[in-house]
Amino acid sequence: MNAWLTQHWQAFILTLKYFIRAPFTNILSILIIGIAFSLPVGVYTLLENLQSHSGAVGGTPQFSLYLKLDATKNQALEIKKNLEEQAFIENFKFIPKDQALKQLAQNNDLARVIGNIGDNPLPHAFVITSRHITASKLEQLRATMQAWPGVEYVQFDSIWAKRLDAMLNIGRVIVAMLATLLSAALVMVIFNTIRLQILTKREEIEVSKLIGATDGFINRPFLYFGALQGFAGGLTAWLIMAIGVQTLNDELVVLAELYTTNFQLKHLDIKDSISLLLFSSWLGWLGARLSVASYLWKIEPK
């Protein structure tokens, strides 16, 4: 185990040495990777921001929950209790049918009609204000409430939310396409870098093979190198985004003040940032792996 760790440590140190030996070329390829990657990362960050502000874009989401005409008082109490337990609900108000009728009667024209009906035809109702959550979650919430006993109908005007969600989905597809294309580009950049490295290290590889180096031993520094470049590229993309978000926010403050709202772009959260770095490292490793697989076997001592 200790010897194994030592070997990996040595391979890692060797990788850093390779890196220092040609700093200009290496920094250049890291920048290429970083800039290429900042594009999907940027669009993704924008989408995340839009999504978290989607409530603000569409106003406060409100539901109307109508009880069945024959709903019992116990059922109404049960619904009240359920509403109190729901995490996404900001607040709610019970409107008994008498009050609803009174409100309706305040309108002169309708008052006459209502007078003719006699019995109150209106159901008890709850008016519910939810937190700002995504359209799909709002839809879920509606379905949950609809299923409670004693509930006749839950109404929710969700068309704006659905439209926004559809647009966000298109955005996500664009991110996925960009990410796929640029990931392929990253793999190719690393593939080529490693290929050049293998060619310049031809002698060392040959000698190592002659004195009993396993393929793993020979591959290791190249794989580390690929992963390290991928990581550095991902980090560069992250930094580019950080600068971009900061710059945009400076301008957004002015705009937000004019609209008297508070809209600030947020950078990737910790989880997304780590995912980005892991993913770009993995892509670098993959590029190196492919390069090693296609070139190393050709170098055999003669």
Binding site: A3, W4, E203, V207, S208, L210, G212, T214, F217
Partner: peptide, 23 residues
């Protein structure tokens, strides 16, 4: 078949690195 990118000591060290020797 000596490697010219490293000194005499490191050239001789190579077989031991390869076979996982304690430093």
């Amino acid at each position: 078949k000596i490697l010219f990118d490293r000194n005499v000591f490191d050239n001789v060290m190579l077989p031991l690195q390869i076979s996982n020797f304690n430093t």
